[in-house]
Amino acid sequence: MLKLGVFELTDCGGCALNILFLYEKLFDIIKFYEIKEFHMASSFKEHDHLDVAIITGTVSCQRDLELLKRVRNNSNYVIALGTCATHGDVQGSVEGSIREKLEKVYGSRANPMKALDSKPIVEYVAVDYALPGCPYDKDEVYQVLMDIAKGVEPPKKDYPVCIECKLNEYECVLIKRGIPCLGPITLGGCNAICVKSKVGCIGCRGPLPKEANPASEFEILKELGYDEEYIRKKFKTFARGELRW
């Protein structure tokens, strides 16, 4: 039996909850894993060393950072789960320093909660596997946990959203409806669920590593009549400053 812990830093809670939405497939997981901490599922908590730790959320305060370091130091295999953990997500893309933000919201630069600029966990510690998505596809986390349980490194995806979109034969909303869609430059794995509902990809899984061509995507969206500011915002919603053109 492997010891598994699920830890949440600052996030909406959806990523941890999404694990529970595996429903009956959870029983497959607990055939191989003993859950030692999972705040969203149980108040039970008992561990000193973990085989696999799943961490969701961004590091947004001192408490997050300390928890992150403790978990990293006591775990063999760390999975950064969800875009908050892998890319910083929406809170990571807010510009400006924390003191400025505090002043804007509360009228004071005081920082009693020891808030930090929101950053993905990959900026602080090395992780063994990064699984983005806001939220991620739950079958993906199932496959990853099963592979680890069986002793093999889970495979990494290297294709954009377009691939799965075409495999499912969804109508291309970018070409056929002029809807801004970041599918061509966004890492796949979501099964193109947004495009299925005729919504353009918002890039929640972060840019396709190494391969993305944001400059061309930028031109395509501009030609469709979207202004530069809009596109710039769209590009950085989930990926902070990673998409340049």
Binding site: F27, F32, G183
Partner: peptide
């Protein structure tokens, strides 16, 4: 090279493109 997005759409819809990738997936434990 600068214009192409490298998204693979052209391959997906091509009647003669035939490259395939193989992956093993778990259906249960």
């Amino acid at each position: 090279e600068k214009i192409c997005l490298g998204c693979g759409n052209c391959n997906m819809v091509c009647p003669t493109c035939r490259c395939y990738e193989v992956c093993d997936l778990w259906v249960n434990a």
